[in-house]
Amino acid sequence: MSDIVIQASELHKTYDETAVPVHALRGVNLQIKQGEFTAIVGPSGSGKSTLLNIIGGLDRPSSGNIQVGGTDISTLNDNQLIDFRKDNIGFVFQSYNLIPVLTAKENVEFVMMLQGSSTEERDRRTKELMDAVGLGDRMHNRPSELSGGQQQRVAVARALAPKPTFILADEPTANLDSTSTANLLDIMARLNKEENITFVFSTHDQRVIDRARRVVVLEDGLIASDTAS
């Protein structure tokens, strides 16, 4: 029981802002355990982003239940959700989304600052994480001084900084060349293997799918297949 990180039960999501309601999720059941390296794949409109948003506490299901680390996050209000995300979920976005006016180090320690960590703790962990993503020597560079691959590695370090329950990565390699993609996947796979960090990706990228140890395929708002290697 304790090693279940994400437990989604009968998730439904309907967007009814338009004249014809769109059923993005039609009853998804998914369980992700500690230390999994899971890719959620599917064509556009399959409900992949919706599922990721609900798992990440950015959106709420129309019905069904979503538990993260044992907490039913569908019952949390906006402020509780923000706090929950801060302490439990590490986000890696497709377009890096680093804060341009801050250095790599400042970006990484940002969430720790929100958590109220001490300066010493932030300095120690930031250094550790920047070393882990191979950018120990680029701590004081701003995002504009880093390549896309380097920026995404900083984003991974930022996602790991608050010691989250799991990392949620939305198309993390979409903007990267093959070398940077391979590099990033190596780092994430190593962190997964060595530190038992749980990764959940949404992706179209075959290179990511090939490296994933579990692939969940969504189609028309339902899980079409779920394979572990």
Binding site: G56, L58, I82, R85, K86, D87, F91, F93, L114, Q115
Partner: peptide, 16 residues
């Protein structure tokens, strides 16, 4: 907009 959304996504509350 996008950056502020990201800040709120990663845990910056509305007051901050």
């Amino acid at each position: 907009k996008k950056e502020l959304g990201m800040l709120m996504a990663i845990g910056m509350n509305k007051w901050k």
